[in-house]
Structure formats: structure tokens, C-alpha cells
Design a protein around this nucleic acid. Sequence first.
DNA 1: GATGAATGAGGATTCATTCAT
DNA 2: TATGAATGAATCCTCATTCAT
Lengths: 213, 213, 213, 213
Amino acid sequence: MSEETKPRRRQARGERRIAQLLQAAANVFCAYGYTATSTNAIAREASVSPGTLYQYFPNKEAIAIELGERLLNEMREAHGQAFTPANLGLPLPELLDVVVDPMIAFNCEHPVFLALMHGSDVPGRIAEEHDALHANLLNRVQEVIAHYAPELSVEDRTRIADMTFAIFKGGLQLILAAPEGAERDAAITELKTVLLRYLSPLTGEPLTTLPNR
Amino acid sequence: MSEETKPRRRQARGERRIAQLLQAAANVFCAYGYTATSTNAIAREASVSPGTLYQYFPNKEAIAIELGERLLNEMREAHGQAFTPANLGLPLPELLDVVVDPMIAFNCEHPVFLALMHGSDVPGRIAEEHDALHANLLNRVQEVIAHYAPELSVEDRTRIADMTFAIFKGGLQLILAAPEGAERDAAITELKTVLLRYLSPLTGEPLTTLPNR
Amino acid sequence: MSEETKPRRRQARGERRIAQLLQAAANVFCAYGYTATSTNAIAREASVSPGTLYQYFPNKEAIAIELGERLLNEMREAHGQAFTPANLGLPLPELLDVVVDPMIAFNCEHPVFLALMHGSDVPGRIAEEHDALHANLLNRVQEVIAHYAPELSVEDRTRIADMTFAIFKGGLQLILAAPEGAERDAAITELKTVLLRYLSPLTGEPLTTLPNR
Amino acid sequence: MSEETKPRRRQARGERRIAQLLQAAANVFCAYGYTATSTNAIAREASVSPGTLYQYFPNKEAIAIELGERLLNEMREAHGQAFTPANLGLPLPELLDVVVDPMIAFNCEHPVFLALMHGSDVPGRIAEEHDALHANLLNRVQEVIAHYAPELSVEDRTRIADMTFAIFKGGLQLILAAPEGAERDAAITELKTVLLRYLSPLTGEPLTTLPNR
DNA sequence: GATGAATGAGGATTCATTCAT
DNA sequence: TATGAATGAATCCTCATTCAT
């Protein structure tokens, strides 16, 4: 028993440490950005010595990468089912709710995600990570678009997906900047409005003219 | 004459140096972000010794600030007249052209601008600069919105301006990422489409249903 | 136990490091003066990396300040009892022995002290430190003088104390410059002779004409 | 004529420049010490470009050396005649006046002198200069002592001369620190008192007991 | 595993000195 | 000669990373 239990416990402890470190890293990255964050600061935030940090990560970049991967997985796990066949059949407004809401919720819970995503300062391999994530998300958006407007050329579809995503990221920043509560809710609604107005012409259905407010 | 020519020449040389250094800084900031950029790297990019850099700027921050100010001035000079009373009278699509095109052109010519603007990593006084600029631009957008939809509450107007600006920044990144040529032009058109669809309901006029392409 | 022993050991090591660094600083300050001493030189003298130095001191000034404080304390501890009421009752020659000898011994052991004291080059806060010490010592000298010649005006007393101290510092330099042994001893005697001849008229007692040698 | 006049004028101009630079150097050395003084600061104080400074001096050290030499010469010229046979015959109090007064006057006019003399921070060759000067002055003092007390051993004479000089330097600092006027005069008198009391036993004559004030 | 001291290369900045004008 | 811009080695100091305990 002890041959298995003990290691397992070790691993469990290790996992806790890693989670703790990643959480700390997330906090500090959020506050100061990747480049300006020192590994010592992360260790301090995690109430851990620098040596311990390096027992779990080979270097600073690895922390950001692992953090990104975990966030990505969590996002997939929690909200991956948004793009189900069933949902694809929904009218656009409903689809937007189904897809956008969990994304926003996730980002509100994990503001590092956005910080890492558009971090103009992240170097090399981290950026690649982001690109991978980016491509992945874009693919999904493209699928949705393809479903609503199958006649579009690949280029058009790509461009629309890119723009949709860009809008989403821009709106997300606004939402995160807004204080929680009515203001943030209004920002969320606004983002949906933008997306709806932008995308509804794709559906063929008329845009049962919503007044602006 | 030589009492005047020489200093003038000196000053000219100094101005050239400053321009050269700022250009170098712009390049390196673009590539690596403000924080990750070393003054030595800037000097190297400018083919100049570190000492020379410090003959013209007291520190790294000052470079970014001066760069920001120059860009801002240039932007004002070149495109400040976009928001004239005459233009405010234009129908939305034309207004978008008049306002958005020069902004895009400017940013294509000076990609640092965006890099500095949304630099999640810029500290202290630089961030203030940006905030000032940001506020300034938002004000103008609000004025336009107020002109088209005077009945909106301040909150609504603010939110719409914020969102418009966010969309613009998002689109801009897309545009800058696109290779010059047809692709970039398409991206530009797409951004205008988004803005038009988002904002036209404000004007009261029906959105003479543009098909998506 | 290990919860206490380890930190204690750590602290002990830290204290040793600090002592080592201060000793190194003392050496280099002595040799080149405060301003001309680089932190890297101190680290090198201490056979330590620059980073280590900065783990214990925030900057060069702090090293000099801490060094000064420690010396001061040590001086107080070791020789503070020189100015006791009992001693004040002694005849001048004995008083000089009691007061001057330990001072000289201390300065022979810690030549930095003098280096820092009269450092014409020390800036800012260090100079303040020195002034405080200076004032303190002067006060004591004044007290002694007041004891021997209570009728003196404050101005006279101050001036005599200043001069006594100046003579002492000048003699000290001579003493430190002399090679240990007979020569140094002779220098010490000489300093006492000066002080005695200078101050004995204050005591009223006749100066039972000592021949010069 | 022009073959001679022009060069002479040039030389005259050069001399003026040098004097101007040395004066500037003196000022800045006084204020900040040798090490902390930058050549640029000297040039600025002299209202001259750094290049010009280096047209007249090969490096920073040379400035200090030249300054020292000039001061030394000036001192010799102005006050060298203090040690004349005639003066050596004077009773000690008068001799002190004759010798000490011009020295003090000189140092009051040229406070750099002292600054350079005891500069704990001056490097290499400058210190040698000082040593030369030092030796020179000490010799003179020894001569005087030998005149008053011919029976003293060389060692005794040397020591007394050293001490006399040390006292003098210490007193000088006090004098320079005192504000011009009554206070400075009192300090001067005090210094003479010290020297008189210290040296009069050498003369054999009784010290017609001066009260301390 | 955990600790935190130690390392040393690197970054910002200064300054003695040189050089084109 | 005078200028002041240019240089680059040297400072002070930080931080990613390693290592003895």
C-alpha cells in the first residue's frame, strides 16, 4: 500500500503546489504583465521560496505556458459543449447567449487569460501557445459561420471569424474593466448587440429592427 | 553667419539623432514591448552607443513618452480635422470613411502607436499619457454619437463610445496583422461594416440592408 | 528543534555575511575612500558576488551607514565608560590617559572610522551620521572642560572643545600612520603631551614644567 | 613681430584658459571632492566645452596635479620668506605670527588646498604631490625646531615637527569652517595658543603663564 | 521536497575621453 | 582652437536560476 499511497500523496501535494504557484503567477501577471513579473515575486505571492518554484517549473516561460494550457483546458472543459449540433440550430440571438455568456464568465473568473492572450510583451513560445488557442477558437467560430452562411468563400468566412473574434476580445476588455454589477451587465449586453448586428445579415433573416436601447 | 549656421546645424543633427532614436525605439517596442526593451537594444537598433542615447533622453520612460507625444501630435496634425462640423453632417457611411480611413492609415504607418496604446505592460507616466489620449479620442466619438442620437443618456452614449472604440482597436489589430494589399483592404472594409451595422440603428435611418458581401 | 535551529543557523550565516561584507567595505573604503569605492569592489574584496552584497544591503550608502553605526556602537560599548564622574575627578594627565588611550586603541583597530569621519567626500545621509557622532563627542569634551573650568563662557568652551577634538583627530592620523611599536607609542605620548600642555592652564594648577622629553 | 606677438598672445590666451579651468576645478573639488567631481562639471563651471578642457589637460588627474603645483608655488612665492634667518631669531610668539598668519591667509584664499591635501580620496600621483609638499613644509618646521632646540635627536625633532604640522592642519580646518569675522579670528588665536603651549617648552624660556583667555 | 543564500549575466545609467566639424 | 556629439567601459543594481543545507 505504502508503495502506492505515498507517491500518490506526493503527487497530490505536488499538484497542489503547482496550482498554488500558477494561481500566484496569474495574480502577478495580471497586475504587472509577464515581462515585469519576477519569478521571485511569483514565489513570494505563493508564499514559497524561489527554489521551490524551480522544483516545479524549469523557468519563467514554462509557468506562463503551463498557465495558458491549464486555462485553455479548463475553458474547453467548462464551455466546450457550447458548440454542439443542437446549439448550432438555434437562432443567432440565442446562440450568442449560449456561446458568449460562458466565455465571458470564464474570463471574468480568470482575467489572466486575456492578459496572456493579448500580452504584447510575451516572448516566443508563449505567443505560439496563444496562437494555437487562437486558431482553435477561430475554427469554432468559422464552423458556426459556415453553418449560418454556407455559401461564403473560405476567405470571407475567415475574415468574418477573425473580426468576430477581434470584436469579442475588445468587448471582453471593456467588460472586465467595468465594475461588477449593472455596469458590467450593460457592457455584456452591448457586446452581444454588436455581434448580433454584425452577424445577423449572414443569417438571411431580417434584423427585426432592434432600437438601440 | 557662422555664429548661427553652426548651432543650427548642430540642432539639426540633434533633431536627426532624436528622430533616429525614436524610430529605433518604435521598432524595438513593437517587436518586444516596452518593458522587455532595453535601452541598449534601442541604441543598438539606432547604431549608436548607449551614451549617445542618454545624451538625448534622461531615461527609458522619457523615450516612450516623447515617442507617444510625437505620434499624438502627428496624428492630430494629419487627421485632426476629421471631426469638423461639416463632416458631422455626413451620413454615417461617409462619416466612417472620413474618420476611420485616416486613423487606419496613421496606424499602419506607425504601428508602435497601437503597441504603446494597449501595452498592458507600460508603467507609470506612460500609462497616464495613454489614458489622456484615450479619453480625448473617446470624447470625440461621444460627440459624434451625441450628434446622431442626441436623445441618448450620458451612460448609454459613454458605453456606445467605449464599445465603438474597442471595436476599432480590435479591428485595427486585425488590419495591421494583415499583409498590405487586398487582404488588408478587405479587413478595413470589414471593420467599417462592423461599425456601420453597430451604429446605424442610432441614426434612425433604415439600414438599407447590405448583404454581407 | 529543527524549526528553530535552522533559522537560527541561517541567521548566524547571514550575520557572518554582513560582518564579512562590512569588513570588506571597511578595507576598501580605507584604501580608496567612499566615493571611489565601487560596490563590485566591495563584493570582490569579500569574495562574494555583487548580487549577494545586495541581498544584505540595499545600496552603497547603506553599507557605509551600517558600518558607521556598528563602529559607533562598538566604540560606545568598549569605551563609553571613560567619561564617568569618577574619572572626571582625576587630575588632567590621568584623565587624558583614561580618555585618550581607549579612543586611540579603538581607532587603531578600526582605521575606517577615521576614514569615514573626516571623509571629505561622503555625501548625504552618511555625513549626517558623522555630524551626529561628532556632536556627541564634542559634547563630552565640553563637559570635561566645564568640569575643569566652570567659569568659561559657552563660546570659549565650545572653541576649546573644537580645538581639542581637532588636535585629537590630527594626532590620531599621525598615530595611525606610524608603524606599530615604539614609533606609534611615541606618537601617542606626543599627542598626550600636546593635549596636556594645551589644556592644563584650564585647571589652574601650575604645569610643573615638564621638559620636552 | 607677428612671428612673436601672435604666439605670445596665443600663449597668453592659453594661460588664461588654464587659469580659468583650474579655478573652476578648484571650486568644484571644494564642493564635491576630487572623485565625485566630473570633468564635465569642471568644464561647465569654466563655461567651456569638455573638448576644450582636454586641449589643456590630458586627464582629470593632471588637473588636480597642476592645481596643486600652482598652489604650492603661489604659497612659496607669497610666503616663502617667512623662514628667513631674521625671523628665526624671533621669540616664539612672534615667530608663530610671522609663520602661521600667512599660511592661514593663504588657505583662506585657497580652500582647495586643504581639500586636496587631506583628500582621503585622491588617487595615486596626486597623493605623491601632496607628500612632496608635505615633506617640504615639514623640513622647514624641523629647521625652526632645530634652531630653538638644537640638542634634540632627529627622531624627536621629526616627531615634534609632524605633530606641529598635524595640529596646524587640524586647526586650519576649524578656521576654515568658522564664518569669517570674529569667530574665525578667535579660532586663529586659539590655534596659535595651542602651538605656543606645545612648543614653548622647547625654547627653555618659561611660559610666562598665560591664562587661558 | 523545501529553503533561501549565492550566483553572475544583464540592464539602466554615468562619465572620462575622443573626434568630426 | 573651440565645440559638443559620440564613445564605451565601468557603475549601481536586478533577477532568472542554481545549490548547499
